[in-house]
Structure formats: C-alpha cells, structure tokens
Computed example of a mutant assay.
Amino acid sequence: MIGYVTLGSDDLARAGAFYDALLAELGAARAMESERLIVWATAAGAPMFGVFTPYDGQPASVGNGSMVALAAGSRERVDTLYAKALALGATDDGAPGERMQGFYGGYFRDLDGHKLNFFHLG
C-alpha cells in the first residue's frame, strides 16, 4: 500500500550520508536523486524512503505526531539498527524493547529531528 515516505531536510548532503549508512543495513541503496531529493529503495517496485528539501522554500520541520516505522526483520536487527542510528548521530527517543505483546521497537530522532523506529512483529 505504501509507495514512498519522505522527510524534509535543510541539509541534504548530511541527511544523505546518514541514510546511506543506515539504510544500507536494510539492503537499500539510492534509487533516485537530484539537487532537491535523495530516494532509497531495496528493489524496483518496493516502497521507497526519501529526504527532500521543502518545495515551498521554507525551512524543513518535524511533524508533531508523525513517525516512520521501518521493519527490521528480528528483535536482534532492531537492536543493531537502533544502535547504528545512534552511532551515526541520531538521538534516543525510546530504547529497544517490547511495547506490547508481539511488538518490539526502538525509537530515535534523525539528524533533522524526525521520529523513526525500527520494529519487529512476532
């Protein structure tokens, strides 16, 4: 159902380097880029993730209540990916753990302050 998700950034080079390193852990690579955007995907036709400079020319901002959840595949991968995000400069927004029965997630804020998590169901 999801085709792609985008987040705003005022520093595309910095955001690109962060997500290059982090999303490579999920097997994603740059699929599209221009002076305004970078988009990653794991395969042709798969959902994509991107960072953009805002089209309206205004500063990028963090959406209150917005979050991007990325499937990690296992609890161990949640732990590994969460640690990698923090090592790359992200900030903790909820250490990995079981939030409800069968849902394990680790929450962080990227370099622009956007909230994301890595999760595993089961």
Rank of each mutant, 00 (worst) to 15 (best):
M1R: 12
I2F: 15
Y4K: 15
Y4H: 15
V5P: 01
T6G: 10
L7C: 07
L7T: 11
L7G: 04
S9E: 09
S9M: 04
D10T: 08
D10K: 00
D11I: 11
D11N: 03
L12K: 00
L12I: 11
A13H: 14
R14E: 07
D20W: 07
A21I: 08
A21H: 06
A21W: 04
L23R: 04
G27Q: 05
G27I: 12
A29F: 09
R30Q: 09
M32D: 14
E33K: 11
R36P: 07
R36A: 10
I38N: 11
I38D: 00
V39Q: 13
A41M: 03
T42C: 13
T42W: 10
A44N: 02
M48S: 14
G50H: 02
V51K: 03
V51Y: 03
F52E: 11
F52N: 07
T53S: 07
D56W: 10
G57K: 07
P59S: 11
P59K: 13
P59H: 13
A60Y: 02
A60R: 01
A60N: 02
S61V: 02
V62W: 02
V62K: 06
G63E: 14
N64T: 06
S66N: 13
M67T: 09
M67I: 12
M67Y: 08
V68M: 01
A69G: 10
A69K: 03
L70V: 12
R75V: 00
R77I: 01
D79I: 00
D79V: 00
A85P: 07
A85K: 05
L86K: 05
L86A: 04
A87E: 15
A87M: 00
G89F: 05
G89R: 10
A90L: 07
T91V: 10
D92W: 12
G97H: 13
R99H: 03
M100Y: 13
M100F: 15
F103S: 10
Y104Q: 05
Y104A: 07
G105F: 03
G106R: 12
Y107V: 10
R109M: 04
D110K: 08
D110F: 01
D110R: 03
D112C: 11
G113F: 02
G113S: 08
H114D: 06
K115P: 04
N117Q: 08
N117H: 04
N117I: 05
F118I: 05
F118T: 03
F118G: 06
F119H: 06
F119W: 12
H120R: 09
H120P: 02
L121H: 11
G122D: 09
